[in-house]
Design a protein around this nucleic acid. Structure first.
Length: 821
RNA sequence: GCGGGCGUGGUGGAAUUGGUAGACACGCCGGCUUUAGGUGCCGGUGGCGAAAGCUAUGGGGGUUCGAGUCCCUCCGCCCGCACCA
């Protein structure tokens, strides 16, 4: 084998990368009069920590394939890159080493940049930024102030989740199973004054507009569940002794006549006052103290037996005037509804368990149509024991009737409740965007004037949190004059949750160099929404919900074109790369590092193998020998192209096709059709690559037979061309060798319909559904002809002998099934 | 408990609308080339069987001329939510 045909990615890849860098091949401008349609392809921006790992290689390999495919199918593509650069790991690193988070972050960003270039990802580098740059977080602060001015950012004292390890508060979305998402520490409840974004104002729109976007159904379901909209009624129960009204939220007003007691959350502010003078003061105080100090996760366990204490008071059931005893019990949550419930033990499992524990009566008010008399019964049926007006009525109907009746009498009204809470964005940490607010003793919370933005993050000596933000120590920075009255005032020392930064970065890419504004509306109108967003499913709620909220709020404030209501028109969630069925991690010692891979095989092999391993939305197990196989394939393809370029005359495809030409060209057009569909309809890059392999396998000297040089060159260059979204360097090189052209400037190959239709096909001959033989048959042949062909086969005959033919099924151009008895 | 997903050779996976199960690879076996091979090329490879053939998509049942695909049921694994009234 001549050595000049050796595939050498270490030479090929940097050579083409240099062309793309020198020419700015992937840059797109905003003021183009280009008539082509636009496409915005975006992968979730990386958090720069250390070096990129194999998951990064996967997400950008997927995104780059989409970006290349969109370009080659005639679109002008925005494919930018940036860094989610604020965050705790850099800060924790700083606490340990004293190195400023900016330094470690910038070092990591440099590593990411280097790798992205080595991977050959087609990025418009002119739009690159990190969210930690003042020229960027200036606009994060501006957005905060816009929300503040419209009442969408506000401060309130509230019970918040405190992570004792990170020493900061967390948003509800960042607490899983009662533990901080990052630290794994059990969170504590603290009463603190914190900044919130009013995402709950958008609950309905966030829910309804899910119908307008092409996202995986399971992600939509997660968002729906997280928002947790419940329709029902608010019903007022009055405590006559104290003259106080207690509204409750219920989804089951049809069961109001079955209420036998009333329960309040331990956090309810009236609990102590109610118990006062009843003899229950001490028992209530003990119970409440115990409930508030016990850990949240234990308390939230569904299987925990119900506990509670009587308050010694009662409320009036508005539908029948009955006196219901009041209890405090920790199965009622202060943060949902009104912090108080009516208990209907006959038709609610929790209330039933509580009634058993407290020895309270259970009254059935809905009949089980099946006749069973088991309780609790949570299904539907006719009302009983209620009121002559409603008894016998189906409960779904009664629900509406009872709400109307309550509404007329002013005792209640239809109501909607959400699980979603407002987004807590304050963090008592250093490495984040400073909240641009000044607290003045006489004016209150005052916005930093826009001309004074950005509020720069000051340098501090000590990054360690001490229950307050490290920024509080920067006294020169903290003490300022009030912008409103000029008096002595102090800066807000909390920083923003880093999810704020990633809630709008995709807008900044549209107009990244703009120093006058966060973006121009025209630039945003040109690109938004993102046509294809790609990232991990772990962001199904946090980032993807926040970004949707920001987009809607900014559109309402007039900063986005009104038609931009959603940030990401289509979403693709990629699966993880595992090794031996486990996550890769340093502690397991099973990490495959992208740099080792690229050194050993080149970027093309690494990218192609990752896409070939399986459907990209699924988890996939890494295999070293699989990667070697891909390397061998790319080597064969490149070498065949190099050989063909040097040794086969550069003739066009002959006008008169021989049998071998026809077979090869048919395969090529079949592959074009297959790959195009796999890329356009689905994200099945694995089968697309397999189709290119099949095409290549037909071009080997043994298989191509007497095919003309022009046909072989066409097949090989088509294979290289279709591989270019996955393996851009080797494809560019092979294509250039064969054609002298740049593959990325070529339109995507088009299948010739004439070559997709064959003159004959392989007829499958079945008897009773079992394949007995196959025979060549002319395409489009009549049913009788196909049946005759099948019946003529000896192997078919053998199964017909001695039987009566009952039926003959013909699927044209496919099969014949003869049914016998 | 509720919701969603998945289960196919030794392995990753393919089968897009109910129509040839196992494409394409990895691995393995055999052969050729090579001073050598972590190269290249050729052939084989679900199981049983000498063959004809039988059998096979987690188990069982059903619909159908025909089921990996549709329906019922059971088992196993993964993910999300979980006292949300």
């Amino acid at each position: 084998m001549p050595t000049e045909y050796r595939y050498d990615p270490a030479e090929i890849e940097p050579r083409w990368q240099r062309v793309w860098a020198d020419e700015g091949t992937w840059e797109v401008s905003n003021d183009s009069t280009d008539p082509r349609a636009t496409s915005y392809v975006l992968e979730m921006l990386p958090y720069p920590s250390g070096e990129p790992h194999i998951g990064h290689l996967k997400v950008y390999s997927v995104g780059d394939a989409v970006a290349h495919f969109h370009r080659r199918t005639g679109r002008r593509v925005l494919h930018p890159m940036g860094y989610d650069a604020f965050g705790l790991p850099a800060e924790n690193h700083a606490i340990k080493t004293g190195q400023h988070p900016r330094e470690s972050t910038n070092a990591s960003i440099a590593a990411f940049q280097k790798h992205f270039r080595e991977w050959g990802i087609s990025i418009d580098w002119t739009r690159e930024f990190g969210t930690h740059e003042p020229r960027v977080y200036r606009w994060t602060q501006w957005i905060f102030l816009e929300l503040f001015k419209r009442g969408l950012a506000y401060q309130k004292q509230a019970a918040v989740n405190w992570d004792p390890v990170e020493e900061t508060v967390l948003a509800n979305e960042q607490v899983k199973d009662g533990r901080g998402e990052r630290s794994g520490a059990l969170v504590e409840v603290r009463q603190l004054k914190q900044w919130f974004f009013r995402i709950t104002d958008y609950a309905d729109r966030l829910l309804d507009d899910l119908a307008t976007i092409r996202w995986p159904e399971h992600v939509k379901t997660m968002q729906r569940n997280w928002i947790g909209r419940s329709e029902g009624a608010e019903v007022v129960f009055r405590c006559g002794e104290l003259g106080i009204d207690y509204p409750v939220f219920t989804t089951r007003p049809d069961t109001l006549f079955g209420a036998t007691f009333f329960v309040m959350a331990p956090e309810h502010p009236d609990v102590q006052r109610l118990a006062e003078g009843t003899g229950q003061e001490e028992a209530v105080r003990d119970y409440v103290n115990h409930a508030l100090t016990s850990d949240k996760q234990l308390r939230g366990d569904v299987d925990k037996p119900k506990t509670g204490v009587a308050l010694g008071r009662s409320v009036t059931n508005p539908v029948n005037g009955e006196q219901l005893p009041m209890y405090v019990a920790d199965y009622v949550l202060m943060e949902y509804g009104t912090g108080a419930i009516m208990a209907v033990p006959a038709h609610d499992e929790r209330d039933f368990a509580a009634a058993q524990a407290f020895d309270l009566p259970v009254r059935r008010v809905i009949e089980d149509p099946s006749g069973a008399d088991e309780l609790p019964y949570v299904g539907n049926g006719p009302l009983v024991n209620s009121n002559p007006e409603f008894d016998g009525m189906h409960n779904r109907e009664a629900l509406r009737a009872i709400v109307q009746w309550l509404d007329r009498d002013g005792k209640g009204h239809a109501s909607v409740n959400y699980r979603l809470r407002d987004w807590l964005i304050s963090r008592q940490r250093y490495w984040g965007t400073p909240i641009p607010i000044i607290h003045c003793p006489s004016c209150g919370a005052v916005a930093v004037p826009e001309v004074d933005l950005p509020v720069l993050l000051p340098d501090v000596e000590d990054y360690k949190p001490k229950g307050r933000s490290p920024l509080a120590a920067a006294e020169d920075w903290v003490n300022v004059a009030c912008p409103s009255c000029g008096g002595a005032a102090k800066r807000e020392t909390d920083t923003m949750d880093t999810f704020v930064d990633s809630s709008w970065y995709f807008l900044r890419y549209c107009d990244a160099a703009n120093d006058e504004a966060a973006w121009s509306k025209a630039a945003v109108a040109q690109w938004m929404p993102v046509d294809q967003y790609i990232g991990g499913v772990e962001h199904a709620i946090l980032h993807l919900l926040y970004a949707r909220f920001f987009t809607k709020a900014l559109a309402d404030l007039g900063h986005l074109p009104p038609e931009v209501q959603e940030p990401f028109a289509a979403l693709f969630t990629q699966g993880m790369i595992l090794r031996d069925g486990e996550k890769m991690s340093k502690s397991r010692g099973n990490v495959v590092s992208p740099s080792t891979l690229v050194e050993r095989f080149g970027a093309d092999t690494a990218r192609c193998y990752i896409l070939f391993i399986g459907p990209p939305d699924q988890d996939a197990d890494w295999s070293d020998s699989g990667a070697e196989g891909m390397h061998r394939f790319l080597g064969r393809l490149w070498r065949s192209c190099a050989e063909a370029a040097a040794e086969l005359p550069d003739h066009p495809i002959p006008d008169e096709l021989g049998a071998d030409d026809e077979r090869l060209l048919r395969k090529a057009h079949w592959a074009i059709e297959k790959v195009t569909n796999d890329m356009r309809e689905r994200f099945n890059f694995n089968t697309a690559i397999a189709a290119v392999m099949e095409l290549y396998n037909e071009t080997t000297p043994a298989k191509r037979g007497d095919a003309a040089p022009g046909s072989v060159r066409f097949a090989l260059s088509t294979a290289a061309s279709m591989l270019s979204p996955f393996a851009p360097h080797v494809s560019a090189d092979a294509y250039h060798l064969l054609t002298g052209e740049r593959v990325w400037e070529q339109p995507w190959p088009a299948a010739d319909p004439a070559l997709l239709e064959a003159a004959s096909f392989e007829l499958v001959c079945q008897v009773n559904g079992k394949v007995r033989d196959r025979v060549a048959a002319p395409t489009g042949a009549a049913r009788e002809q196909l049946v005759a062909l099948a019946r003529a086969r000896a192997k078919v005959q053998a199964h017909l002998d001695g039987h009566d033919v009952v039926k003959e099924i013909v699927v044209p151009d496919k099969l014949v099934n003869i049914v016998v008895r």
